[in-house]
Design a protein around this nucleic acid. Structure first.
Lengths: 108, 108
DNA sequence: TCCGTAGTTCGATATTATTGAACTATTGAA
DNA sequence: TTCAATAGTTCAATAATATCGAACTACGGA
């Protein structure tokens, strides 16, 4: 049985957040999770369909370790939720600002 | 004669900024440059004294490419300045917020 | 019980970062 | 001028990290 380790709110670091969000694929995953306002399986939140499962799994592991994502098991799939409250408590406004700029850039 | 390439303001990307700031050493360099409110040589802004010159040089190259730092040559040394205005124009509030959280974290 | 699905883990390869050594450009002193 | 010292870059080799496919685990349904 796979058990996930999530850092407590206070153990979320700026370095971890920046490191996690510095990868374009992970930024897209986080973007999708925030937009969803609920949980998504890993495959649902996948940033591109041709990415290897193992790579996707690794990205989620990094997002979990950074404290950005909380994963629980539900049946055969994993339910991933963005830890909005914890991130907001730790770094108020940061995620919203980054995603805002991200969206603006994508919108052109 | 070494000539430096700096992206124009509009070519500064969020991805580039996040990528550049996701490295702790580069974040410390940027921290120092902002605090200085003026130019610093590479060695002056070095995040730790035992870092290899080539590594330090590479970090500055990444910061330049991201559009965070502007480097000009003055005599035997390089004058590095943080591109505050350009970054603020492109991503208002972002750098200030990140550095604010960084300082808060360091203050413990 | 057996098959399909969703993810993880593992070992190998590909990419990226770091390093020391050699090099360039500039300054200052003999 | 010439020589040594300084600041930083470039290069080639190595160290570290990311990606991948294959094998594996766990669960659900036929």
């Amino acid at each position: 049985m796979v058990q996930f380790v999530h850092p407590s709110r206070d153990d979320i670091t700026l370095e971890g957040i920046l490191e996690a969000l510095s990868d374009p694929m992970r930024l897209r995953i986080v973007r999708a999770l925030v937009a969803q306002q609920g949980c998504m399986s890993c495959t649902e939140a996948a940033p591109c369909p041709d990415m290897a499962k193992s790579t996707l799994s690794n990205h989620f592991r990094i997002l979990r370790q950074a404290g950005l994502v909380m994963t629980s098991k539900k049946g055969v799939e994993h339910r991933n939720v963005i830890r909005l409250d914890d991130i907001e408590a730790r770094f108020p406004g940061l995620l919203k600002m980054i995603l805002g700029f991200y969206d603006a850039e994508k919108a052109g």
